[in-house]
Simulated scan of single mutants.
Amino acid sequence: MSYNVNNKGYYGEFGGAFIPEMLYPNVEELRQNYLKVMAEPEFQKEFNQLLKDYVGRPSPLYFAKRLSEVYNTKIYLKREDLNHTGAHKINNTIGQILMAKRLGKTRIIAETGAGQHGVATATVCALMGLECIVYMGEIDIERQAPNVARMKMLGAIVVPALSGSKTLKDATNEAIRDWINNPVNTHYIIGSVVGPHPYPDMVARFQSVISEEIKEQLQAHEQTSKPDYVVACVGGGSNAAGAYYHFLEDTSVKLIAVEAAGHGIDSGESAATSVLGREGIIHGSKTLLMQTKDGQITEPYSISAGLDYPGVGPMHAHLFASGRAEFLSVTDNEAMTAGMKLAQLEGIIPAIESAHALAVFEKKQFNPNDIVVLCLSGRGDKDLDTYIKYFKL
Protein backbone atom coordinates (compact mmCIF):
# COMPACT_ATOMS: atom_id res chain seq x y z
CA MET A 1 0.00 0.00 0.00
CA SER A 2 1.23 3.50 -0.84
CA TYR A 3 0.71 6.45 1.48
CA ASN A 4 1.48 9.08 -1.15
CA VAL A 5 -0.99 10.59 -3.59
CA ASN A 6 -1.80 8.68 -6.81
CA ASN A 7 -1.99 10.22 -10.28
CA LYS A 8 -5.73 10.84 -9.89
CA GLY A 9 -5.19 12.92 -6.75
CA TYR A 10 -6.28 10.29 -4.22
CA TYR A 11 -4.72 8.92 -1.06
CA GLY A 12 -6.43 5.52 -0.91
CA GLU A 13 -10.12 6.45 -1.10
CA PHE A 14 -9.60 10.06 0.04
CA GLY A 15 -8.78 13.19 -1.95
CA GLY A 16 -9.87 14.20 -5.44
CA ALA A 17 -11.13 17.56 -6.65
CA PHE A 18 -14.81 18.24 -5.97
CA ILE A 19 -15.11 21.79 -7.22
CA PRO A 20 -17.62 24.12 -8.86
CA GLU A 21 -17.27 24.42 -12.62
CA MET A 22 -16.13 28.04 -12.24
CA LEU A 23 -12.98 26.90 -10.42
CA TYR A 24 -12.08 24.11 -12.81
CA PRO A 25 -9.72 26.21 -15.00
CA ASN A 26 -7.75 27.47 -11.96
CA VAL A 27 -7.35 24.08 -10.32
CA GLU A 28 -6.60 22.38 -13.63
CA GLU A 29 -3.94 24.98 -14.51
CA LEU A 30 -2.28 24.30 -11.18
CA ARG A 31 -2.57 20.52 -11.52
CA GLN A 32 -0.98 20.53 -14.97
CA ASN A 33 1.91 22.75 -13.93
CA TYR A 34 2.82 22.27 -10.26
CA LEU A 35 5.15 19.28 -10.60
CA LYS A 36 6.83 20.69 -13.72
CA VAL A 37 7.40 24.09 -12.08
CA MET A 38 8.67 22.53 -8.84
CA ALA A 39 11.17 20.41 -10.78
CA GLU A 40 12.69 23.41 -12.61
CA PRO A 41 16.28 24.01 -11.42
CA GLU A 42 15.62 27.77 -11.30
CA PHE A 43 12.55 27.26 -9.08
CA GLN A 44 14.48 24.90 -6.79
CA LYS A 45 17.34 27.35 -6.53
CA GLU A 46 15.11 30.32 -5.65
CA PHE A 47 13.00 28.27 -3.20
CA ASN A 48 16.00 26.81 -1.36
CA GLN A 49 17.80 30.17 -1.26
CA LEU A 50 14.79 31.85 0.36
CA LEU A 51 14.37 28.99 2.85
CA LYS A 52 18.00 29.45 3.85
CA ASP A 53 18.47 33.23 3.85
CA TYR A 54 14.95 34.48 4.55
CA VAL A 55 13.32 31.76 6.68
CA GLY A 56 16.51 30.75 8.47
CA ARG A 57 16.50 27.04 7.59
CA PRO A 58 17.53 24.45 8.48
CA SER A 59 15.56 24.76 11.71
CA PRO A 60 17.38 23.04 14.62
CA LEU A 61 16.63 19.50 15.78
CA TYR A 62 16.95 20.04 19.51
CA PHE A 63 17.46 17.26 22.07
CA ALA A 64 15.13 18.20 24.95
CA LYS A 65 17.25 16.86 27.80
CA ARG A 66 15.05 17.73 30.79
CA LEU A 67 11.83 16.70 29.03
CA SER A 68 13.52 13.42 28.04
CA GLU A 69 14.51 12.77 31.65
CA VAL A 70 10.97 13.37 32.90
CA TYR A 71 9.46 10.92 30.39
CA ASN A 72 12.41 8.49 30.29
CA THR A 73 12.80 8.49 26.51
CA LYS A 74 14.79 10.45 23.89
CA ILE A 75 12.78 13.48 22.80
CA TYR A 76 13.93 15.65 19.93
CA LEU A 77 12.05 18.82 19.01
CA LYS A 78 12.05 19.93 15.38
CA ARG A 79 12.11 23.68 15.96
CA GLU A 80 9.75 25.07 13.30
CA ASP A 81 8.92 27.75 15.90
CA LEU A 82 12.30 29.33 15.08
CA ASN A 83 11.42 30.02 11.45
CA HIS A 84 10.84 33.60 10.32
CA THR A 85 7.18 34.44 11.22
CA GLY A 86 7.20 31.83 14.00
CA ALA A 87 5.84 28.63 12.45
CA HIS A 88 6.14 26.04 9.68
CA LYS A 89 3.61 27.92 7.51
CA ILE A 90 6.28 30.03 5.78
CA ASN A 91 7.78 26.97 4.01
CA ASN A 92 4.57 26.53 2.03
CA THR A 93 3.79 30.21 1.37
CA ILE A 94 7.25 30.77 -0.13
CA GLY A 95 6.74 27.77 -2.40
CA GLN A 96 3.26 28.86 -3.45
CA ILE A 97 4.18 32.51 -4.04
CA LEU A 98 6.94 31.41 -6.42
CA MET A 99 4.42 29.11 -8.11
CA ALA A 100 1.85 31.93 -8.41
CA LYS A 101 4.43 34.25 -9.99
CA ARG A 102 5.36 31.64 -12.56
CA LEU A 103 1.67 31.19 -13.41
CA GLY A 104 1.35 34.95 -13.92
CA LYS A 105 -0.92 35.68 -10.93
CA THR A 106 -0.91 39.19 -9.46
CA ARG A 107 -3.38 38.86 -6.57
CA ILE A 108 -3.12 36.46 -3.64
CA ILE A 109 -5.89 35.31 -1.32
CA ALA A 110 -5.62 33.08 1.76
CA GLU A 111 -7.59 31.78 4.70
CA THR A 112 -6.25 31.61 8.22
CA GLY A 113 -7.31 30.27 11.64
CA ALA A 114 -4.51 30.83 14.12
CA GLY A 115 -3.23 33.65 11.93
CA GLN A 116 0.18 32.06 11.30
CA HIS A 117 -0.67 31.16 7.70
CA GLY A 118 -2.14 34.64 7.19
CA VAL A 119 1.05 36.22 8.52
CA ALA A 120 3.21 33.92 6.37
CA THR A 121 1.14 34.76 3.27
CA ALA A 122 1.21 38.51 3.99
CA THR A 123 4.97 38.22 4.52
CA VAL A 124 5.71 36.65 1.15
CA CYS A 125 3.30 39.02 -0.63
CA ALA A 126 5.23 41.95 0.87
CA LEU A 127 8.47 40.28 -0.21
CA MET A 128 7.23 39.86 -3.79
CA GLY A 129 5.11 43.02 -4.05
CA LEU A 130 1.77 41.27 -4.64
CA GLU A 131 -1.71 42.25 -3.46
CA CYS A 132 -2.82 40.16 -0.45
CA ILE A 133 -6.30 39.50 0.96
CA VAL A 134 -6.64 37.24 4.01
CA TYR A 135 -9.97 35.80 5.17
CA MET A 136 -10.24 35.10 8.88
CA GLY A 137 -13.14 34.12 11.15
CA GLU A 138 -14.40 36.95 13.33
CA ILE A 139 -13.80 34.86 16.49
CA ASP A 140 -10.23 34.07 15.41
CA ILE A 141 -9.60 37.77 14.70
CA GLU A 142 -10.43 38.47 18.35
CA ARG A 143 -8.34 35.68 19.86
CA GLN A 144 -5.34 36.14 17.55
CA ALA A 145 -5.10 39.96 17.65
CA PRO A 146 -1.26 40.14 17.47
CA ASN A 147 -1.26 38.16 14.21
CA VAL A 148 -4.00 40.36 12.75
CA ALA A 149 -1.86 43.41 13.53
CA ARG A 150 1.14 41.76 11.86
CA MET A 151 -0.84 41.05 8.69
CA LYS A 152 -1.99 44.66 8.51
CA MET A 153 1.56 45.93 9.08
CA LEU A 154 2.68 43.73 6.19
CA GLY A 155 0.13 45.39 3.91
CA ALA A 156 -2.55 42.70 3.79
CA ILE A 157 -6.28 43.36 3.88
CA VAL A 158 -7.88 41.17 6.59
CA VAL A 159 -11.52 40.34 5.82
CA PRO A 160 -13.63 38.90 8.68
CA ALA A 161 -15.79 35.81 8.02
CA LEU A 162 -19.10 36.50 9.76
CA SER A 163 -21.02 33.30 8.94
CA GLY A 164 -21.29 29.94 10.72
CA SER A 165 -18.89 29.41 13.60
CA LYS A 166 -16.86 32.45 12.43
CA THR A 167 -13.65 30.37 12.47
CA LEU A 168 -11.36 28.60 9.99
CA LYS A 169 -14.00 26.66 8.05
CA ASP A 170 -15.94 29.86 7.38
CA ALA A 171 -12.81 31.79 6.39
CA THR A 172 -12.08 29.02 3.88
CA ASN A 173 -15.61 29.29 2.46
CA GLU A 174 -15.16 33.05 1.96
CA ALA A 175 -11.78 32.59 0.26
CA ILE A 176 -13.25 30.04 -2.16
CA ARG A 177 -16.10 32.48 -3.00
CA ASP A 178 -13.53 35.19 -3.75
CA TRP A 179 -11.58 32.81 -6.01
CA ILE A 180 -14.73 31.92 -7.98
CA ASN A 181 -15.30 35.66 -8.55
CA ASN A 182 -11.68 36.40 -9.51
CA PRO A 183 -10.48 33.33 -11.39
CA VAL A 184 -7.99 34.84 -13.84
CA ASN A 185 -5.53 36.97 -11.85
CA THR A 186 -5.85 35.35 -8.40
CA HIS A 187 -3.96 32.50 -6.76
CA TYR A 188 -5.42 30.98 -3.61
CA ILE A 189 -2.65 30.00 -1.19
CA ILE A 190 -4.22 27.21 0.87
CA GLY A 191 -2.38 26.91 4.18
CA SER A 192 -2.80 23.23 4.91
CA VAL A 193 -2.92 19.81 3.22
CA VAL A 194 -6.62 20.30 2.47
CA GLY A 195 -8.64 21.41 -0.54
CA PRO A 196 -8.92 19.96 -4.03
CA HIS A 197 -6.05 18.07 -5.66
CA PRO A 198 -3.27 19.17 -6.26
CA TYR A 199 -3.24 21.30 -3.07
CA PRO A 200 -2.78 18.54 -0.46
CA ASP A 201 0.15 17.09 -2.42
CA MET A 202 1.68 20.45 -3.32
CA VAL A 203 1.56 21.72 0.28
CA ALA A 204 2.96 18.41 1.59
CA ARG A 205 5.86 18.67 -0.87
CA PHE A 206 6.69 22.23 0.18
CA GLN A 207 6.54 21.18 3.84
CA SER A 208 8.56 18.00 3.23
CA VAL A 209 11.72 20.04 3.90
CA ILE A 210 10.91 19.32 7.58
CA SER A 211 11.37 15.54 7.32
CA GLU A 212 14.26 15.96 4.87
CA GLU A 213 16.13 17.93 7.53
CA ILE A 214 15.08 15.55 10.34
CA LYS A 215 16.79 12.66 8.51
CA GLU A 216 20.08 14.56 8.07
CA GLN A 217 20.07 16.06 11.57
CA LEU A 218 19.22 12.79 13.28
CA GLN A 219 22.12 11.13 11.49
CA ALA A 220 24.42 13.70 13.10
CA HIS A 221 22.82 13.31 16.56
CA GLU A 222 22.14 9.57 16.73
CA GLN A 223 24.00 8.03 13.74
CA THR A 224 20.68 6.97 12.23
CA SER A 225 18.37 8.82 9.84
CA LYS A 226 15.31 7.01 11.19
CA PRO A 227 13.47 7.97 14.38
CA ASP A 228 11.28 5.39 16.12
CA TYR A 229 8.38 7.83 16.26
CA VAL A 230 7.41 11.10 14.56
CA VAL A 231 4.76 13.07 16.48
CA ALA A 232 2.82 16.10 15.23
CA CYS A 233 -0.45 17.91 15.89
CA VAL A 234 -3.11 17.67 13.18
CA GLY A 235 -5.83 20.17 12.31
CA GLY A 236 -5.73 20.24 8.53
CA GLY A 237 -2.29 18.75 9.04
CA SER A 238 0.47 20.49 7.07
CA ASN A 239 3.16 20.39 9.76
CA ALA A 240 2.40 16.69 10.26
CA ALA A 241 2.49 16.03 6.50
CA GLY A 242 5.89 17.73 6.31
CA ALA A 243 7.28 15.88 9.32
CA TYR A 244 6.00 12.49 8.06
CA TYR A 245 6.69 12.93 4.33
CA HIS A 246 10.06 11.17 3.91
CA PHE A 247 9.04 8.41 6.34
CA LEU A 248 5.59 7.62 4.87
CA GLU A 249 6.62 4.44 3.05
CA ASP A 250 8.98 3.23 5.80
CA THR A 251 6.69 1.47 8.25
CA SER A 252 9.51 0.94 10.77
CA VAL A 253 9.04 4.65 11.60
CA LYS A 254 5.82 4.98 13.59
CA LEU A 255 3.67 8.06 13.03
CA ILE A 256 1.54 9.67 15.74
CA ALA A 257 -1.04 12.35 14.91
CA VAL A 258 -2.51 14.37 17.77
CA GLU A 259 -5.93 15.99 17.38
CA ALA A 260 -7.75 18.50 19.55
CA ALA A 261 -10.40 16.92 21.78
CA GLY A 262 -11.51 20.34 23.07
CA HIS A 263 -13.63 19.86 26.20
CA GLY A 264 -13.63 16.09 25.60
CA ILE A 265 -14.48 13.80 22.70
CA ASP A 266 -18.08 13.30 23.80
CA SER A 267 -18.62 16.85 25.04
CA GLY A 268 -20.06 18.19 21.80
CA GLU A 269 -17.18 20.70 21.80
CA SER A 270 -14.30 18.93 20.11
CA ALA A 271 -12.28 18.75 16.90
CA ALA A 272 -11.24 15.07 17.08
CA THR A 273 -12.08 14.21 13.49
CA SER A 274 -10.60 10.69 13.49
CA VAL A 275 -12.97 9.65 16.29
CA LEU A 276 -16.03 11.73 15.41
CA GLY A 277 -15.74 12.02 11.65
CA ARG A 278 -16.97 9.98 8.72
CA GLU A 279 -16.46 10.23 4.98
CA GLY A 280 -17.65 13.43 3.42
CA ILE A 281 -16.62 16.26 1.15
CA ILE A 282 -15.33 19.59 2.43
CA HIS A 283 -13.53 22.39 0.59
CA GLY A 284 -13.05 20.35 -2.55
CA SER A 285 -11.83 16.99 -1.28
CA LYS A 286 -13.23 13.73 0.04
CA THR A 287 -11.97 13.13 3.55
CA LEU A 288 -13.00 12.37 7.13
CA LEU A 289 -15.33 15.05 8.37
CA MET A 290 -17.35 15.83 11.50
CA GLN A 291 -20.98 15.96 10.37
CA THR A 292 -24.55 15.38 11.47
CA LYS A 293 -26.60 12.35 10.38
CA ASP A 294 -27.93 14.30 7.41
CA GLY A 295 -24.47 15.46 6.33
CA GLN A 296 -24.39 18.99 7.76
CA ILE A 297 -20.90 19.95 8.95
CA THR A 298 -20.59 19.97 12.74
CA GLU A 299 -18.98 23.02 14.32
CA PRO A 300 -15.57 22.05 15.68
CA TYR A 301 -14.13 23.47 18.89
CA SER A 302 -10.60 23.77 20.29
CA ILE A 303 -8.85 26.29 22.52
CA SER A 304 -6.31 26.36 19.70
CA ALA A 305 -7.33 28.46 16.70
CA GLY A 306 -5.25 26.31 14.35
CA LEU A 307 -6.83 22.95 15.21
CA ASP A 308 -10.56 23.71 15.17
CA TYR A 309 -11.13 22.41 11.64
CA PRO A 310 -14.02 19.95 11.17
CA GLY A 311 -11.99 17.62 8.92
CA VAL A 312 -8.45 16.47 8.27
CA GLY A 313 -6.47 16.52 5.03
CA PRO A 314 -7.01 13.47 2.78
CA MET A 315 -3.45 12.23 3.39
CA HIS A 316 -4.21 12.02 7.12
CA ALA A 317 -7.62 10.45 6.53
CA HIS A 318 -5.79 7.71 4.61
CA LEU A 319 -3.08 7.35 7.28
CA PHE A 320 -5.85 6.89 9.85
CA ALA A 321 -8.06 4.54 7.80
CA SER A 322 -5.11 2.36 6.80
CA GLY A 323 -3.69 2.25 10.33
CA ARG A 324 -0.36 3.72 9.17
CA ALA A 325 -0.59 6.51 11.77
CA GLU A 326 -1.85 6.29 15.34
CA PHE A 327 -4.31 9.08 16.14
CA LEU A 328 -4.61 10.41 19.68
CA SER A 329 -6.97 13.09 21.01
CA VAL A 330 -5.88 15.69 23.57
CA THR A 331 -8.17 18.01 25.55
CA ASP A 332 -7.70 21.74 26.05
CA ASN A 333 -6.59 21.10 29.61
CA GLU A 334 -4.04 18.43 28.66
CA ALA A 335 -2.60 20.64 25.93
CA MET A 336 -2.32 23.76 28.08
CA THR A 337 -0.63 21.77 30.86
CA ALA A 338 1.85 20.28 28.37
CA GLY A 339 2.61 23.75 26.97
CA MET A 340 3.33 25.09 30.44
CA LYS A 341 5.52 22.07 31.19
CA LEU A 342 7.69 22.66 28.11
CA ALA A 343 8.06 26.33 29.04
CA GLN A 344 9.24 25.48 32.53
CA LEU A 345 11.43 22.48 31.67
CA GLU A 346 13.06 23.71 28.46
CA GLY A 347 12.51 27.47 28.30
CA ILE A 348 10.42 27.15 25.13
CA ILE A 349 6.86 28.53 25.00
CA PRO A 350 5.05 26.52 22.31
CA ALA A 351 2.05 27.46 20.21
CA ILE A 352 -1.05 25.83 21.68
CA GLU A 353 -1.29 23.72 18.51
CA SER A 354 2.16 22.24 19.23
CA ALA A 355 1.29 21.86 22.92
CA HIS A 356 -1.35 19.31 21.87
CA ALA A 357 1.42 17.16 20.37
CA LEU A 358 3.51 17.53 23.54
CA ALA A 359 0.67 16.08 25.61
CA VAL A 360 1.34 12.72 23.92
CA PHE A 361 3.95 11.93 26.58
CA GLU A 362 1.23 11.81 29.24
CA LYS A 363 -0.87 9.53 27.04
CA LYS A 364 1.64 7.00 25.81
CA GLN A 365 4.61 5.15 27.28
CA PHE A 366 7.80 5.18 25.21
CA ASN A 367 10.87 2.99 25.76
CA PRO A 368 14.07 4.57 27.16
CA ASN A 369 15.92 3.97 23.88
CA ASP A 370 13.12 5.21 21.60
CA ILE A 371 13.99 8.23 19.50
CA VAL A 372 10.87 10.40 19.42
CA VAL A 373 10.92 13.40 17.08
CA LEU A 374 8.16 15.91 17.75
CA CYS A 375 7.40 18.71 15.32
CA LEU A 376 7.20 21.91 17.36
CA SER A 377 5.14 23.62 14.68
CA GLY A 378 5.00 27.13 16.10
CA ARG A 379 5.90 29.46 18.93
CA GLY A 380 3.55 30.66 21.62
CA ASP A 381 3.78 34.45 21.19
CA LYS A 382 0.43 34.51 19.38
CA ASP A 383 -1.18 32.54 22.23
CA LEU A 384 0.12 34.47 25.23
CA ASP A 385 -3.28 36.03 25.88
CA THR A 386 -4.89 32.57 25.96
CA TYR A 387 -2.17 31.23 28.26
CA ILE A 388 -2.53 34.30 30.53
CA LYS A 389 -6.31 33.86 30.86
CA TYR A 390 -6.11 30.10 31.26
CA PHE A 391 -3.46 30.03 33.99
CA LYS A 392 -4.38 33.47 35.43
CA LEU A 393 -0.76 34.55 35.01
Rank of each mutant, 00 (worst) to 15 (best):
200 P>K: 06
235 G>A: 04
226 K>C: 00
248 L>I: 15
190 I>L: 14
208 S>M: 02
206 F>V: 08
231 V>C: 08
232 A>F: 09
194 V>K: 01
198 P>Q: 13
200 P>C: 11
187 H>N: 14
233 C>Q: 15
239 N>E: 05
203 V>W: 03
188 Y>L: 07
200 P>F: 04
251 T>R: 09
239 N>F: 05
189 I>Y: 08
216 E>P: 01
206 F>C: 03
192 S>R: 04
234 V>M: 05
202 M>T: 08
225 S>K: 13
202 M>D: 04
212 E>G: 14
220 A>F: 08
201 D>T: 11
189 I>Q: 12
202 M>R: 03
219 Q>H: 13
240 A>I: 06
208 S>V: 03
251 T>Y: 08
209 V>Y: 10
247 F>I: 00
246 H>I: 02
232 A>D: 09
231 V>F: 06
243 A>R: 00
208 S>I: 03
225 S>E: 15
194 V>P: 00
183 P>K: 06
204 A>F: 02
195 G>L: 10
216 E>V: 14
195 G>Q: 11
222 E>L: 01
192 S>L: 02
253 V>I: 13
220 A>N: 13
197 H>G: 00
241 A>P: 09
230 V>P: 03
183 P>D: 05
198 P>R: 14
203 V>C: 02
223 Q>L: 13
193 V>N: 00
188 Y>R: 09
241 A>I: 10
191 G>V: 07
250 D>F: 04
195 G>T: 13
250 D>Y: 07
225 S>Q: 14
197 H>M: 01
204 A>W: 10
223 Q>E: 15
200 P>L: 08
240 A>H: 10
242 G>L: 07
247 F>D: 00
187 H>Q: 15
242 G>I: 03
195 G>F: 14
237 G>E: 11
217 Q>K: 08
237 G>R: 09
229 Y>K: 00
186 T>Y: 10
205 R>L: 11
205 R>Q: 13
206 F>P: 01
195 G>A: 11
184 V>G: 09
221 H>W: 12
251 T>D: 14
205 R>Y: 07
227 P>F: 05
214 I>W: 03
227 P>T: 08
199 Y>I: 10
244 Y>W: 12
236 G>D: 07
184 V>Q: 13
196 P>T: 14
218 L>V: 09
183 P>L: 09
237 G>C: 15
189 I>R: 07
194 V>C: 11
193 V>I: 14
219 Q>D: 13
216 E>F: 06
204 A>Y: 04
226 K>S: 06
223 Q>I: 09
195 G>D: 11
225 S>F: 05
246 H>Y: 13
250 D>V: 12
197 H>K: 00
188 Y>E: 08
208 S>K: 03
224 T>S: 13
213 E>G: 07
236 G>E: 08
188 Y>Q: 07
233 C>S: 14
232 A>P: 04
231 V>A: 06
193 V>H: 00
